[in-house]
């Protein structure tokens, strides 16, 4: 039962990686265009990344159980 769980956890992590990568990339672009808004963009970025990460961790925890 270890290998299906590992595949499941891996898939969840791939999804989260794509999602957080997109957020990070867009935040970088945003900050480069508007450096004065860096603080606000960072906060919004961390919240969105945390929400995605939460979903990925659901996946990992479910695979562990």
């Amino acid at each position: 039962m270890v290998i299906p769980a590992a595949i499941g956890a891996g898939l969840a992590v791939i999804g989260a990686g794509i999602g957080i990568g997109k957020i990070g990339g867009s935040a970088m672009e945003g900050i480069a265009r508007q450096p004065e808004a860096a603080g606000k963009i960072q906060t919004a970025m961390i919240i969105a990344a945390a929400l995605i990460e939460g979903v990925a961790l659901f996946g990992v925890v479910v695979s562990m159980g």
Partner: peptide, 13 residues
């Protein structure tokens, strides 16, 4: 529920 899992999983991991 998401708050619970996020903190638990991050620190344990």
């Amino acid at each position: 529920f998401a708050l619970t899992i996020r903190l638990f999983a991050n620190i344990t991991a």
